[in-house]
Design a protein around this nucleic acid. Structure first.
Lengths: 194, 194, 194, 194
DNA sequence: AATGAATGAGTCTTCATTCAT
DNA sequence: GATGAATGAAGACTCATTCAT
């Protein structure tokens, strides 16, 4: 049955995320994963071509979760400042919760020299942010940008970096709030200055 | 004599950088490295505790090269705008040249969950940039910042990200010059806006 | 099917006993064993956790064989003297046949500091001898002993030692028969004297 | 200087005994030994042909110590009973103190299939015991034996076994005193019965 | 005699993947 | 679709030994 089938896929993916997050990609064996998922060794290969094929699936999963949370949190704001603040807050929260998965995606994709996959998975995310930027421009809250998509990417990366530096790089000589405020002002100044 | 000794270390490190850059950390065997370095298998372990111990050494090496090039290129400028432009240009150039090494550092450190090592290696780099920022403030070219070091980190990461997206993420729907110009203005606006 | 499965275990164990007996534990590689057993390298690890895990299995096997032969040979005797003579004869025969396995068990267990495993494997053997001793006492052939089990252990070890000295230590300035006779009388005197 | 020279030999031997006793022969590297001895790697090979060449030296050393202690303790006795009691006591004490060295000798010699070396090292020990036995016979304390040397070996092995079972095999369901008493009576009965 | 850097052969063990049931 | 026993290639690492100084 298709539900049955999909169950095994999710079971394996979920187990993989949990174990790999904890132990890292190369310290995790297929055997670990199937044991946790409660399926047989061979079953893994019915759903994933290889061990490496897990990574894009995990990355995809992460972005899906991120976008879901993002839309949920930011849709109550009408002004750009409020949106930006909530956006930053959400990124910090997600980074905290999923730091291990984020790290595994970085390393997993880097290993294969397949960083460009990362970009393609991010695409809808960038587009969503671009729409929000455009709304800010229409409302006259921020200035016209030369290249909307590029600016979107820049800002998303900027905020993610700050959050990662805070949670993953353990660069915590500021509080979370101070760190977020700095990012907020940095971006805001850039978006509003003539 | 002491040169002899140091030679083996350099020989191995250089071979490691070249091969790992090309094939990735986990597709490279110690055997590959020592063969290229022209030393015996066991000699590797006289200089590195393990295969993973290579990564911090490689990262360190990368930062050293980066800072050297950076100082060399930027010291002819007296105004901040000129400095920033040269700085961005240098980052793009270095990223292009060392993209494989950069990727291997990311993935290598991520594998071990030792991203904080990255931060500690970056420390002198951050400090150098901070000094440049301060000079810009003294000259009245940019506005006072709440947290100098934090801003330094933010900007360095911002520029590196843009360059990495351009060269590693293959996000090349702009030219290199357009990309650099965007970054320049984004940063400049943020640093000069009241 | 279940025979199939058990076959691999037996195949590996048998090959291991033969090769290790001949070449010693540390001159034998897993590769040697699996080649002789006709299974794949990895298959070894499905049945034994490590190379060292072979030793207790081999020791167990040796004791099983020993007890089997022992019971077979001694059960025709009703008087203790006859039993003791046959017992000694059997030990000499087994020691001769399995001297290499005996040596490998000693050294193998000693390496791990796990000599106590040896004792636990011997337990049923000691108990069996104790029963025979008790029968001798009931029949009035030998005198009451303070500690039956302890005496059993002492005698078994005594006889084994003599046999090992004869076959392994190559201390052959007596014939096998003389050696056995000496042991017989030594033990008998001790068991019958008031 | 010859003292100098001999110093290094003793330094290495002593270090070897200590480390190998603790970690076992195959978990100890030459590197461990020379580090503890405070000499250079190459120096080891000036005094020992190979790693395995250590074992006979260690065994020899153990027997020397044993005989020394033995003579020291037993020479105050004139009757055989007193001698035997002291002998047993001494064996138990030495076994306790040197159990690790004993184990390493067993395993070390067994590995090479060179158990006969053990016998040759024991030779003077056997002879010394034989002399004591003869004295007992002259004094009419024990009966004439068919084969003096063989009986000596048997008894030494018997007592050592009991002690080893007590200290190494951890077969301690009797106290040390009970164990020793049993051995004493067992041997005494056998030596005095007609 | 003493050193210790260099060697490189040797081996255990892991693990992704296959395939007969 | 599901299983899991079997495979065997691959590789990190150890360590006894050598030798130029």
């Amino acid at each position: 049955m298709s539900t049955e089938t999909h169950d095994k896929y999710r079971l394996i993916l979920q187990a993989a995320i949990e174990i790999i997050s904890e132990k890292g990609l190369y310290n995790t064996s297929i055997s670990d994963i199937v044991k946790k998922a409660g399926v047989a060794q061979g079953t893994f290969y019915l759903y994933f071509r290889s061990k490496n094929a897990l990574i894009p699936a995990i990355a995809q999963n992460l972005i899906s979760i991120t976008m879901e949370k993002m839309k949920e949190n930011t849709n109550k704001h009408t002004d750009f400042d409020g949106f930006l603040q909530t956006f930053i807050e959400a990124i910090y929260t997600i980074t905290d919760e999923y730091k291990d998965v984020i790290v595994l995606c970085y390393s997993g994709l880097a290993i294969d020299h397949s960083m460009e996959i990362w970009e393609s998975i991010y695409q809808p995310y960038y587009e969503w942010f671009e729409t929000e930027l455009e709304r800010g421009i229409e409302h006259g809250e921020i200035i016209e940008q030369t290249n909307m998509q590029w600016t979107s990417k820049l800002i998303i990366n900027l905020v993610e970096n700050a959050a990662e530096r805070f949670y993953i790089g353990r660069d915590q000589d500021m509080t979370k709030e101070q760190s977020m405020t700095e990012v907020f002002h940095f971006v805001r100044r850039s978006l509003t200055a003539k």
